[in-house]
Every structure is written in C-alpha cells, then in structure tokens.
Design a protein around this nucleic acid. Structure first.
Lengths: 348, 348
DNA sequence: TTATATATTGCATTCGAATGCAATTTATGG
DNA sequence: CCATAAATTGCATTCGAATGCAATATATAA
C-alpha cells in the first residue's frame, strides 16, 4: 500500500491562533524581549536586530496583541465617548471628528450611545472594567459620578457640558453668547415680540441658551418673553407653534429656538398650519449650524458651533491629561459663529 | 510634644491603582480563584463564599479588569463597527441601534468612522491588534480584505453591503426591490419620463438601486432613462437638477434618487431654481426613510429601511457566529417599506 | 592596546483574571 | 456511623507583551 500522498501542509507556525511575540522570537532566533522592543518606538535596538525581527514578523504575519500590551503597560489606548442621543443630527459630526482625531493619536474609541441621560450610571459601570485611558462625555454627569472619575483617576473632558463650580475640564461653545448674538441681530432688525422655544428644562445647554437670550432681551428692555419647552426634536418645534398660536391673539415677531431642528419644525408649522413664511411674516432662528440648516427650504439664521476646533481641543486636552499625570483642569469656551440665513429679518 | 493628630486615613487597600481580585481575596480571606469564580456566572460557588466575596468586593470597590479577562479567556467582548461616512444621516440611527443592542449582550463597540472607503485597509490594521470578537462592516471590503477575516477567523457581518459570490454573512435591505416598488407606483400614477439620480458608481448599494429601477422600467416598456451620478449629498442632488434642466428641453416627470438626502436637494432645486413643486409639476422619490424625509417641506415618498429589524438581525448573527464556532454564513435580506409621502404622484 | 563608557541583548518577572487538576468539604446512601 | 459521590475550594499555571536589571557586545578614549 503506497504512502498516502497527503499534501504535507507546511505551516510556518504549528499552533493555532494568532502569532505571538514568542513565535516571532523563535523564528528570528532572538529573545521575546527583543521582539517587544522592536515594536516599541524609541527602544534600544540595533539595526541588524530590527531587520531580522521585522522580517520574521512579516513572514509569520505577526500583529502585537493590544490587550496583552494594555495589561502590562497600564494603558489601554482606549477612550470612551459618551453621547446621549446620536440621532440629534449634531452629534454624528462630532463623533466622526472625534474618532478620526483620536485615531491619529493611536487611540481607539469605545462608543456608548445612551438612550436617555438616565442610563449614565449604568453605562459608567460598563466603562470601568475596560480601564479606558480617558472619557469624553457629551452627557450630563452628577457630581457623584464625576467623583467616580476622580477616585479612579480617569481623565474626563466634558463636551458642551460642565459641572458649574467643579474643577472638571471641558470644551464648550459659548451658549449664552450665541443666544445674545441672535437676540442682538433680531432686535436691530426691529423685532420686539419674542418667543423662546427652549430645550428640556434639565438640559444645561438648553438652559444656557435660554438664559442668554432672556438676559439680553432684558438689557434691551424687552421683558418676559414667553418660553415654551421642547425636546430638541422636529416634532416638538412643530408642536410648540400650535401651542403658541392657540394662546396668543397676535403672533410673535421672532422665535428663538434651542436648536436648528426645532427651528426647522417651527418654520414648517408656521408655513403649513398658519400660512406664515419667514422672514416676511415671522423670524425664526436656531442654534448649532447642522447640515440641514443650509437646506434651501429653511436656510436658517443660526449660530454655528465650531465643531472642528472644539473636537480638536477636546482631543488635545484629553490626550494631555492622559500623558501628563499632573493634569490641571481647564475649561475652553469657543464662540459660535453667526450663520446668516434667510429665516429671519436680521441685522448683524 | 503631643502626638500629631493626623487624621490617620485608614485606607482599606494600601497600593495605588484599581483593586484587583487578589486584594479582594486577601480581604475576604479566600483564594483569588474563588473571587474569579464569584464573578463568573454559572461557576461552582457556595452561597456563603459568594456572600463573603461580594461583600469584600463591595467594600474595596472591586471591578473586574476586562483587559486581563480578555487576555486569558480569548474573548475581548469587543466588536468593531466600520462606517464610511457617519454624516450620511442614515448611519447615526444604525449606529445607535447597534451599540444599544450589543450592549445588551455585554459587548462594547469600537467605532471606526472612515473618512473615505479608501481608508479601509489602514483601519483593518488598527482593528486586528484589539482581537475584537467580531466586526460589522458598513463599508465595502475587497475580496482580499475579506480573506484577512477568514484567515484570522474573525466573524464578519456586512451591513447593506455584500461581496457577490462569496460566502460572507450579511444583512441587507433589498435595494432592487425597493427601487422597483418606487417605479411601480410612479408608473401607475402615469409617469413616463423618468430620470435617475444615482449614487457614486462605486457604491454597490447605489448601483443596485439604480439597476432595480432601470430593470423595472424596461419591463414596463420605458427605455433608457437618463442617469446622473451624485454622491448622496444634498448638494449633489441640488446640483444634478441644474445639469438635468440644462440638457433636456422638456423636464422629466419623475426623478428617482439614490437616497433621501439627494431627493431633498433635488426638491429644493426644482422649487427654488425652476419653480417646479412636487407633486404637481414633478415627482421626486428617495430611499432610506431618514428622519428629515418626514419633514413637512419635503414629505418624501421613499423606501424606509427597517433599521430596527436589520440591526437586530446583524447583532444576532454576529453574536451567533461568535458563540458557535461552526459558523455557517447566511445572508438576510429585508424588504424596504414604502413610505408614501407627498413628494410624488404615486399609486401604490 | 587596554580600560572605560555606551549601546544591545537576554533573563526573569510582572500585569490581573481564568481554569485544569488535586485536595478538601459537604451531601447522600446504605 | 462509615463509604462513596458530589460540590467547593485552593494551587499553580496560563494568556502575550513590557521592562528592570544584569550580561554581553561595541564604541570611544587614553
């Protein structure tokens, strides 16, 4: 009986599973530590050694195990990003920017998209086990929750949130200032009857935008504008117009909305249900400068948040806190840029 | 000299850094393995032991280190999600659903948001070191790249993509069928002069939508509709209307767009630049059923992708592939739902 | 050329949890 | 009450890379 002519698969490495540094070391005839050092930038390795190891690594298809590396080095190169409602139209842009910027630092993003801000504490429990190097939070955090970060010495940067009176790093758009810019332009253009479509009362950002507007209005002698609370959605902006028009005998001049999407909803409601079009019959302004704010049907006058600069700042701050241990906290506030559209009579 | 009345901070644990299972073991007077077992569901532990350990863990604030666990167990509980352009308006919803569903399985999402599909291979290199348990790809992958997954035995599920003729799992919306539904309704309503605003030629999804429409048109005896290529953006939809109206003496009846956002751009261009409004002067349909498709200014007739069911399927498939090693591949195709709006004369 | 400084390399240990196996305890049966 | 089975527990090792320290090789100075 002839020998079975089995194909004798010559596998360079016998064991299954990914190639380890030991495999590479054996194949190159050097120690495991040498392999490790060849993959560590700035390590003390001779040219000859590097070549040998790299060749062996190449041949075996070696890829360093980031998990093992994290364990021993104490750095996971992971960052958690907390976002409350991704469908908010504003956040996808932020998120895309963040991941790309972190990527340039060799850091990967663990995404946590919360259904509601109520899920935060649960989410934090999911984060801790991964020993992330830092966290970007675009959600509210209670003082206790911030305390957890301090206890664990996990760097934290708030994005468009902050805990007043506590030393936490943050990157924000100047919400109040933006609102004041909007009021100014509307006032100059002759508006005197203002209404505010605010965000939900628990939204810090929303409250600041509202406060900024109200304060500036008071300074200008316009007292007590009507305030309605929405939830940042198109539907709420749309619905609030109904509420508004029911109450008031005479419609307002100008509606200041907590964000672009509500402004868009309001514009549609005014036009569809009341035959009022902007900017002739009514002025509506938003906040954020999201993509659809440019759409011709709306062409919003709004405050554009400098997302690129803000994300850059957030990433840099977090990376600095990760790399230097003597992290002093810092708050960076960026001014929004007025984006003049056609949804309001407005004089800049 | 009186003793310094220093507060004698009694720290339960002296060493810095997170509490380990050894700390808990020592504090509870048991072995480290016992601690480990207490945190593993289904392990053999007596009630008494569990109580002691849990109490100690509680007191010390112990949190299992997921990194260390991954290293020894060979499961990272990490899944990578690849998305090409997050600003596409369709993907944020998908992404939010995916993270929440994975979360329910105790799996975290590593997000990779590509600037362009060209960055895929670079991104893959960033993924491998993390030994993710699986990958959801909402991007094109070359056969070689898919081969890399097989070589590494990393489960892969395509989302709205597939490699024709290769055995890779995928979850898709039936693009061709959707396009045919749109053609049917438009045809029934009397349209005969069709134009297609397709996606970029390299987009498989876009090509399928286009093909579906063209094929159905041919079956109905409408030959060679004009096809223009866009890039899924509002601007491209808007601009293509310009191209179209320059060429043709008489405008078309109906425009079939590769996605909602292009349809929205087209609607705006028709109205603003040519005084044509839907559905009286022109019919425009989209694809996806994104949030803004419901906005009153557009009120799109479109095909809504069943995102919830699709993401559920994708997550279940991937989890199954991760948990059973005998992964047989499967392709699941979901039909889109017609969303009848007011942007087209349409008879369903 | 020899002595000293510098650069490379390997050895052995470490990170923190999981797990096979053996030792021990507890439960069950006769 | 003793023997055997079953359930717990601990011991020792493992996952894969990084790193302090000692050993060796190379470069520089005298």
């Amino acid at each position: 009986m002839p020998e079975k002519t089995q194909p004798k698969v010559v596998s360079i490495k016998s064991g299954k599973g990914p190639v380890t540094s030991y495999d590479v070391a054996r194949h190159a005839g050097v120690s495991q530590s040498a392999v490790s050092r060849c993959f560590k930038p700035g390590a003390s390795v001779s040219t000859k050694m590097r070549e040998r190891v790299m060749k062996a690594a190449e041949e075996l298809g070696y890829e360093p195990n980031a998990i093992a590396r994290s364990l021993i080095s104490g750095r996971s190169n992971l960052v958690a990003v907390l976002i409350s409602n991704l469908t908010n139209l504003y956040y996808p842009e932020v998120l895309a920017e963040l991941t790309q910027r972190f990527s340039a630092h060799g850091v990967r993003v663990l995404l946590f998209a919360l259904k509601s801000e109520a899920d935060v504490s649960e989410t934090l429990q999911q984060i801790w086990p991964y020993r992330v190097d830092g966290v970007i939070a675009a959600t509210e955090l209670s003082p206790e929750q911030v305390g957890e970060f301090e206890k664990r010495e996990v760097p934290l940067v708030f994005y468009n949130r902050h805990l007043t009176g506590s030393p936490v790093s943050s990157v924000c758009c100047d919400q109040e200032d933006g609102a004041r810019q909007l009021v100014n332009g509307l006032y100059r253009a002759g508006h005197r009857k203002f209404v505010i479509f605010a965000g939900p009362p628990e939204s810090v950002v929303g409250v600041e935008r509202k406060t900024g507007a109200i304060e500036r209005l008071e300074e200008l002698g316009v007292e007590d504008p009507a305030v309605f609370n929405g939830d940042y959605s198109y539907e709420s902006g749309y619905a609030l117009v109904g509420n508004l028009m029911n109450k008031k005998a005479s419609p307002p001049d100008a509606v200041i909305c907590a964000n672009d999407v509500m402004a868009i909803g309001a514009l549609d409601a005014f036009r569809v249900n009341h035959g009022l079009t902007a900017p002739d019959d009514i002025s509506v302004v938003g906040f954020d400068g999201v993509g659809p704010s440019h759409w011709k049907s709306y062409n919003l006058t709004t405050i554009r948040q400098p997302v690129r600069r803000m994300t850059e700042a957030a990433v840099n701050m977090l990376m600095e806190m990760i790399e230097e241990s003597d992290s002093s906290n810092e708050k960076r506030v960026f001014s929004g840029m007025l984006q003049a559209g056609g949804s309001a009579r407005f004089i800049n």
